[in-house]
């Protein structure tokens, strides 16, 4: 047992889990082409969920603040992006990659700006008065979530909205006998870029150093002469913007969105951060990939279990590692 866990640790430890999951699924599914399609779908879903979850995890790690209103950023990101895309429908449908990309860039920029602004508002108005008080924090952010959902209902109505996809992201490419949707590849790529960007900032820059140190011991960073609260508002804004981008990408993936989107994704996001361990983006990525793969494999193998699959995954992982797979050092 001891040897086994050492062996396991040497070859990447918990990071091997998604690989193991994929291999197990390969045996169960049997057909390589279906397996490849599901794996790609799982990875791209995982990356979109990572976008939504990374901010929540960092925000909690740095300030011990759990924002139940986080899903409002996801919903708003989706609706803002969808609105911009439909306003630019001429560009979206045009047979020009340039116009397509511009529409996409504008939609994502709108989601990002919204996320930054809403994040600033949330942090400074809603959350700041209740730092260090978990009970009131949970209640207030939940209240803010209710209000945000109602605002979405008031602005966009309760009926589903169709999301236009930029023309160049439509369709699929065929690799061998596997057909891969371009949008999924794009979502995967965007998520990967975001992860690498976050990773570099956290590990190579002074701000990142402060954030990592602050996650471990906020008080000590302050005693060294740095205002964590000022740093925190920045992290909060970036985290909210990432959630909005995740929501925008998810809107394009689903192509039909309702105001319930944020609430549905929130459950997945919570499961991801619990599995991954709060406070580290590596853990969040790991959790997101696990959840994405599991959802797609189980959805194919046993559709009836699809809904419960994430809960089951979370239960197993919590029984094994009560703090999640890779929590930040505290």
């Amino acid at each position: 047992m001891e040897n086994l866990s050492q062996f396991f640790g040497r070859f990447g430890g918990v990071y091997l889990l998604p690989v193991g999951l994929a291999l197990g699924a390969f045996v169960l599914i049997g057909a390589p082409s279906s397996w490849a399609t599901l794996t790609i779908a799982g990875l791209s879903m995982g990356m979109m969920v990572f976008l939504m979850a990374s901010g929540l995890s960092l925000i909690f790690g740095l300030m011990d603040v759990l924002n139940f209103g986080h899903s409002a950023f996801i919903s708003f990101g989706a609706f803002v992006a969808a609105t911009v895309l439909s306003a630019l429908s001429g560009w979206v449908g045009a047979d020009s990659v340039f116009l397509n990309s511009m529409a996409l860039v504008f939609a994502l920029l709108a989601a990002i700006s919204f996320g930054l602004a809403a994040g600033w508002f949330f942090e400074s108005v809603i959350i700041r008065p209740v730092y260090h008080d978990h009970l009131r924090q949970i209640l207030i952010t939940m209240g803010a979530l209710i209000v945000s959902e109602q605002i979405i209902l008031a602005l966009w109505g309760g009926t589903p909205i169709t999301v236009l996809r930029p023309h160049f992201l439509e369709g699929a490419i065929i690799l061998g006998n596997v057909s891969v949707e371009i949008y999924r590849l794009f979502a995967f790529g965007l998520g990967l870029v975001a992860f690498i960007g976050l990773y570099l900032v956290l590990n190579r820059s002074r701000i990142g150093l402060l954030v990592r140190a602050g996650v471990e011991n906020r008080e000590m960073v302050e005693a060294l002469g740095f205002r964590i609260d000022r740093l925190f508002i920045g992290v909060f804004m970036v985290g909210s913007a990432l959630a909005a981008v995740g929501g925008a990408m998810w809107a394009g993936y689903e192509t039909l969105i309702t105001p319930a989107l944020g609430g549905e994704m929130m459950i997945v996001v919570f499961i991801v951060v619990i599995i991954g361990g709060l406070g580290s983006i590596e853990g969040t990525l790991l959790g997101a990939i696990m959840v994405g793969l599991t959802a797609n494999y189980v959805g194919f193998l046993a559709p009836k279990l699809a809904l419960a699959s994430n809960m089951i995954l979370m239960t197993i992982i919590l029984l094994w590692r009560p703090n999640g797979l890779r929590p930040a050092v505290k």
Binding site: L209, L210, R212, A213, E216, N217, V221, A328, V329
Partner: peptide
């Protein structure tokens, strides 16, 4: 800060 190196601990300060 346990996850930071000795150098990072010092340069942070």
């Amino acid at each position: 800060f346990g996850s930071l190196t000795v150098e990072e601990n010092l340069i942070l300060a």
